[in-house]
Design a protein around this nucleic acid. Sequence first.
DNA 1: TATAATAGTTATAATTCATAACTATTAGAG
DNA 2: CTCTAATAGTTATGAATTATAACTATTATA
Lengths: 159, 159
Amino acid sequence: MTKPRQQDAPPVVEHVSDDTLRQFVGYHVKRAMNVIQGDLAKTLRPFDLRMVTYSALVLIVDNPGLRQSQLATAMDVERPNLVVIIDELERRDLILREKVPTDRRAYALMPTLAGRQLCDKAIAAVKAHEARLLAGLAPPEIKEVVRALSQIELRGSEE
Amino acid sequence: MTKPRQQDAPPVVEHVSDDTLRQFVGYHVKRAMNVIQGDLAKTLRPFDLRMVTYSALVLIVDNPGLRQSQLATAMDVERPNLVVIIDELERRDLILREKVPTDRRAYALMPTLAGRQLCDKAIAAVKAHEARLLAGLAPPEIKEVVRALSQIELRGSEE
DNA sequence: TATAATAGTTATAATTCATAACTATTAGAG
DNA sequence: CTCTAATAGTTATGAATTATAACTATTATA
């Protein structure tokens, strides 16, 4: 005999079980990602940055002179969608589109001083917030996680 | 002296470095998530399911009788957005909205036989695909990753 | 009984993501 | 060397996802 049910009424669910989904690593990744994304958004708000503008800025600071198409590929964003991101960063004078004399179709993306400074501050803030999220995890554990996630990422690119 | 640059031209970036972002676990989670999400979408396409409809179906099969608001909370989806998801599953006769005699505002979500069957098949397919993504990772490593991700998830909910 | 709260819905806006087509320019085949 | 194809960036646009306000019906509570 199963749970007693009055008449023909549907069972009342007191606690929702997601055990089946929990067997999938992907589910855990998704839920962790939700938390991380929410935390990141909150962290970046004071800098008036979103996740995309933040990562674009970091990549430009780290790779001064790169082209928009390179950045789009690195960020896994369609070229048309990158345009507005770059527009926004340029409008705020965090980066600039520098003309490339050897190829007049392309722009070399360069960070400004303000861009580098904001980037540094944002990175520091993100670092602090991430540390709080990862509190309770020992460094070797974290290394292990990163290794595993990289492995998954790799599997994806070799399709 | 740094890299030689002809005249005043911006440096040419041959390889885009994302080392700065790689220091963040969140970045790795995001990139792994992209791969997983793409793989999942491909896996579910033959069943005419998307990630949201799939997880909704699984949760309904595992928790027959649950209410839409419970499901919305479990899935981290706004109630209005869940309506169309449930509509879709119901239209395909995978689930049904059963009237609750004790509360005439609410619907108890129940899977149909077809729903349970499709769910089983989809779960099997996802399991197989995930196994391929995780090939190269030993079971204890996977356990470690899940533990770490759960920890992150937890940190988020205790804000 | 009156008021507040809840379940589900509708309508709608904001945001994100994807696609086609265009201009200007460069590279490559012949 | 010229013609064609390919590339960089852009514009326009649409699809999909996500979020918000307000509504109906019903239940819980003061």
